[in-house]
């Protein structure tokens, strides 16, 4: 059965007819050509298909496409700025060895984004917990965790710079 849905995809409004049994992953990869979102298991056990729905990390392989109606979806393709400059998390994964085979990377980065949006200063345990649903076989997770910590540290540093420059203190 087909149905029309409207949602925001990576900042752009979109209106598309879908079949009701489609998953969001299927819609993204097969119908919209956004293959950056990966399918690693198809049953919510690996996190490769992670995208953000209204800011929350979800497994798109288990998410009903119809439920995206009216929502805001972010995939890895929408993370960089419009001018192509990379998101700090993308940069950090690149510079800190957070990427090897890269298959888990889009999901990892989006899980990390959801975490930092909710909790700008996560502990190592917070980070590990947020990534627990994103499996990786290459890295042992160490450099992935370090990549996220580097973004957090950089932000704190930037805030401190601002505080110093404006002379604020508390």
């Amino acid at each position: 059965m087909s149905r029309e849905i409207k949602f925001i995809l990576n900042g752009n409004p979109i209106c598309i007819a879908i079949e009701e049994h489609w998953t969001l992953l299927y819609l993204l990869r097969e119908k919209l050509g956004l293959t950056g979102t990966k399918e690693g298991c198809g049953r919510g056990e690996c996190g490769a298909c992670t995208v953000l729905v209204d800011g929350l990390a979800i497994n798109s392989c288990l998410y009903f496409a119809v439920e995206t109606d009216g929502k805001n979806i972010l995939t890895i393709e929408g993370l960089a700025a419009e001018d192509g400059s990379l998101h700090p998390l993308q940069k950090s994964f690149i510079e800190n060895g957070g990427i090897q085979c890269g298959f888990c990377t889009p999901g990892m980065i989006l899980s990390a984004k959801a975490l930092l949006d909710e909790n700008p200063r996560p502990t190592e345990t917070d980070i590990k917990q947020a990534l627990a649903g994103n499996l990786c076989r290459c890295t042992g997770y160490v450099q992935i965790i370090e990549s996220i910590e580097a973004v957090v540290d950089k932000r704190i540093e930037d805030i401190n710079v601002v505080v110093r420059e404006t002379g604020d203190s508390d």
Binding site: G44, G47, I58, A132, G133
Partner: peptide, 12 residues
């Protein structure tokens, strides 16, 4: 509840 599935699953 904090140990059920992953964050992705718990969100939904």
């Amino acid at each position: 509840v904090q140990r059920i599935g992953s964050t992705q699953v718990r969100n939904v």
